[in-house]
């Protein structure tokens, strides 16, 4: 952990406005990686997301003198990046209908919640829910759902029976449902309210 991590947000904002490069670096290190992954949920490509977020930071420094955050730094950063992503998609001539679908899903899905991309309580809750899965079960689940492996491929690689793999997967789903369903619902609710 960097010692600079505990500089408060208002202080950071003020310092950036005054042209303090260290403060800019602190904000950059704190937000950049999360913003990139957040943006890639909109762009579907991480390299594009990286460019968008870098552009945002260059622009942030250039107009630092007249920065006024009506909201927190967090919501300013995430909202700006989101808008930049939509601008990019329009520029790329993506059909309006597709952009509308993305807008809808971005209001509903946990994956567009800024707290997923920052040190936060939400991150802790997600980690806890995933860690509550038995290790094998988690491993099988990741291989199946995110690496797109077939059940018999997983069975072969982990030296398990196909039946066991299936049980692991359904157990994982049940456990995650139990642990986070109420929370996922909550996230969606707060999105609608805000």
């Amino acid at each position: 952990m960097l010692l600079t991590d505990n500089i408060g947000e208002p202080e950071l904002t003020e310092r950036i406005c005054k042209g303090d490069r260290v403060a800019f670096d602190v904000a950059f290190r704190r937000y950049y990686p999360g913003l990139v992954i957040f943006a890639s949920q909109f762009t579907a490509e991480q390299s594009v997301a990286e460019e968008i977020v870098q552009d945002f930071f260059v622009r942030l420094w250039e107009k630092r003198m007249d920065l006024v955050f009506t909201d927190s730094m967090k919501s300013y950063f995430f909202t700006s990046v989101k808008n930049r992503c939509f601008n990019y998609l329009k520029h790329r001539k993506i059909e309006l209908e597709v952009i509308e679908r993305l807008k809808v899903i971005s209001r509903q899905s946990l994956l567009f919640e800024p707290d997923v991309y920052l040190d936060s309580e939400l991150q802790e809750k997600i980690t806890r829910a995933v860690n509550a899965l038995p290790e094998r079960c988690r491993e099988v689940f990741i291989m199946s759902r995110f690496k797109g492996m077939k059940n018999d491929e997983i069975a072969e690689q982990l030296n398990l029976s196909k039946r066991t793999v299936e049980t692991h997967i359904s157990n994982a789903i049940a456990s995650l449902r139990r642990d986070l369903k109420e929370y996922a619902g909550l996230v969606i609710l707060t999105w609608f309210l805000s």
Partner: peptide, 22 residues
């Protein structure tokens, strides 16, 4: 995505954050 897949995907996204070349 079902809710559980969303959570799992969120978890994987959190891991990806650590790999970004800041």
């Amino acid at each position: 995505f079902s809710d559980d897949q969303e959570i799992m995907e969120a978890y994987l996204s959190m891991q990806k954050i650590k790999e970004v070349g800041t």
